Computed example of a mutant assay.
Amino acid sequence: MTYRTLGLTGLLAFSSMALVGCEQAEKSAQQLAEQLKEQAVETAKQAIDDTHKAAEQALSDATGGLISPKKAPEKDAEESEPATHTL
């Protein structure tokens, strides 16, 4: 073997290892991005829930309890019952 062949073989081996390392780094970055996205979604949901509860409490406090949050959705119950209107 000549030095040229050894150099070329070494260069190819190094390039192959670098590519494998880049692919692994890309996969790790994608996994991290997915985890961060899931955490951001959960944080946003929690913030919305907390804001909703605070708004309900503020409304109840401002109206002296005359308007209180609904415990169960009545809209679904109204939709499931047949309408019985008499003339």
Rank of each mutant, 00 (worst) to 15 (best):
S28T: 14
A72Y: 13
S28Y: 13
A58N: 13
H52W: 03
T43I: 04
A77I: 12
L8E: 12
K37A: 14
S28V: 09
L32Y: 09
T43H: 13
A44Q: 12
G21N: 13
A33E: 11
I48H: 10
A55Y: 01
A40Y: 07
K71N: 06
I67L: 15
G10D: 08
L8I: 04
Q24A: 15
A44I: 02
T5N: 14
L36W: 08
Q30G: 02
Q30T: 12
S15R: 05
L59G: 11
Q46S: 10
G65F: 00
F14P: 00
D61L: 02
G21I: 01
S68M: 12
L19I: 05
T63Y: 07
D49V: 07
D61W: 02
A18R: 03
S28I: 11
L36K: 15
D49Q: 05
R4T: 09
K70Y: 07
A33L: 09
K53V: 05
A40Q: 11
K71R: 04
F14I: 13
Q31Y: 14
S15A: 14
D76T: 09
Q46P: 00
A62R: 07
G10C: 12
E23D: 13
E74G: 11
T9L: 10
E78D: 04
Q30E: 14
L11W: 06
L32V: 07
K27Q: 15
T43M: 12
S15Y: 02
D49T: 06
K75A: 05
G10W: 02
K70T: 07
H52C: 04
I67A: 10
L11I: 03
S60K: 06
T5C: 08
V41F: 10
E23F: 15
M17P: 01
G65N: 01
S60F: 04
T9Q: 15
S16E: 08
A25K: 14
E34W: 07
E78Q: 14
Q30D: 08
A40H: 08
D76M: 04
K71E: 13
Y3S: 14
T9I: 11
E56G: 00
D50L: 00
